[in-house]
């Protein structure tokens, strides 16, 4: 008999994670359980990271329903790819990478490649009349629209760096480029935002 056979009962769809909130498992342990087929463990990961994934997606597309779809796609792809997650990165970094890929795929499907297009050349349909009063909500909406209109690489770098408190190195790991390239993309994103939002800032 295997000495350890009874010590490792198969999960069998039980929900040990949600039943034991007093001892929350870290992401790595949840990933291990999810790889073994424990969908309840994966559900905890979804709960933990759904907000940040949704916010990345929302920044990309500036639209709730689209962001919700992209969020779902991100987690489903993560589930399918769990076997390739080796714990060399944090789960949060890994899920960001998937979210960015899902969003970039959507962007490339929906719009022509625009990396070469400077921001001030993009037609502006929301620019307010000079001197018009703009409330805070409208101003925020304009900024989000301006971010969405950035070329994909600039958008990606700005979103991850500015809104998700990731280091330049982490952003570089996520998008598969150098730290210098990330910083350059952040700079050009901000320079383009400045031009785009000239009446506001």
């Amino acid at each position: 008999m295997r000495a350890d056979a009874t010590a490792a009962p198969w999960p069998l769809g039980a929900t040990p994670m949600s039943d034991a909130p007093e001892t929350p498992l870290d992401d790595a342990a949840l990933v291990e359980a999810a790889i073994a087929g424990d969908t309840a463990a994966f559900d905890v990961l979804v709960t933990r990271h759904r907000r940040s994934v949704y916010q990345v997606c929302y920044r990309f597309v500036n639209h709730h329903e689209d962001a919700a779809d992209l969020t779902q796609d991100t987690f489903v792809r993560a589930w399918k790819a769990l076997g390739s997650f080796r714990g060399q990165a944090r789960f949060s970094t890994w899920i960001y990478r998937i979210a960015v890929n899902v969003c970039l795929n959507r962007v490339s499907l929906k719009t022509p490649k625009t990396d070469a297009v400077d921001f001030d050349l993009v037609a502006d349909q929301r620019e307010p009349a000079p001197g018009a009063a703009i409330d805070a909500a409208e101003r925020q909406a304009m900024v989000r629209a301006a971010v969405k209109s950035l070329p994909p690489r600039q958008r990606t770098a700005l979103i991850l760096r500015t809104y998700h408190d990731l280091s330049h190195q982490e952003v570089a790991d996520i998008v598969g480029t150098s730290v210098g390239a990330v910083k350059a993309n952040v700079f050009h994103a901000l320079a383009n935002l400045k031009k785009r939002l000239e009446p506001l800032v």
Partner: peptide, 18 residues
């Protein structure tokens, strides 16, 4: 100055809470 202002504007824009 431009970069700082653009960053401040970017950071002021929250994602609407669903």
């Amino acid at each position: 100055i431009d970069v700082r202002e653009a960053l401040a504007a970017a950071m002021s824009a929250e994602v609407p809470e669903p």
